[in-house]
Amino acid sequence: MSHNRLDRSAIAPELRRIERRLMLKGALSLGGLSMLSGCALDDEPSVERALSAMSRFTDRMQALLFSRQRLAREFDASRITHPFPFNAYYDESEVRTVDPAGWRLDVGGLVSDRRPWSLAQFRALPQKRQITRHICVEGWSAIGDWSGVPLSMFLQKVGADLRAKYVNFRCFDDYSTSIDMATALHPQTILALDYGDRALPPAYGAPMKVRIPTKLGYKNPKYLASIEVTNRFPGGYWEDQGYDWFGGS
């Protein structure tokens, strides 16, 4: 994963731009899944179609398996991974920060109250703490300690249509992802403000991260900028490149 770290970070912005352009091309030609098959099968559209159809089937089965009552295991403080690893689609040196006092969370879509929220408003609500295992799609995992406001409570406060299909997250590091409403209403899905006993540090998504222990890491966005409730399939940064959308644990 991290061969040639030095060289890569030097040219990283350029690389990313090129990668994105290639990705976009793929998205236009083959529904965003053109990179799925690799090797010689790369150019075979029927293989791509079959794989993406299977991926949608996998998503449906994951949604069926999901239960709002089933909780992710919570751990003792002694099990927390130190240091909890940083992970993003860029290097840690490129982490973006905002002034917490000026930060606002935009609220949009199928909600009755679209006024943006400040951190102070979130701090005024009851907080829930969880020590849970974060599992990355790459296979590694780490146990962390997050607290924040249950997303279900926030959705009720803004008068969200709870029968809508999706909740879409956009981030100020240009990341994005989206989840199903059932997972949004799961009791362990929280808008995390703290890591351990302190406010989220920049590396972990300051000032706000969505923590969803029933989903893989790429469905746990950091650096949150907006929440939208919608019935239109929103996709996401990695999902548009071929990761399965549901990404459930």
Binding site: M35, G38, V137
Partner: peptide, 17 residues
């Protein structure tokens, strides 16, 4: 098989079913 992680996962689940 798959060319990259996302492709590998797509193949893995497709073949799993």
């Amino acid at each position: 098989l798959g060319g990259w992680l996302g492709g590998g996962i797509a193949w893995h689940f497709a073949a799993m079913w």
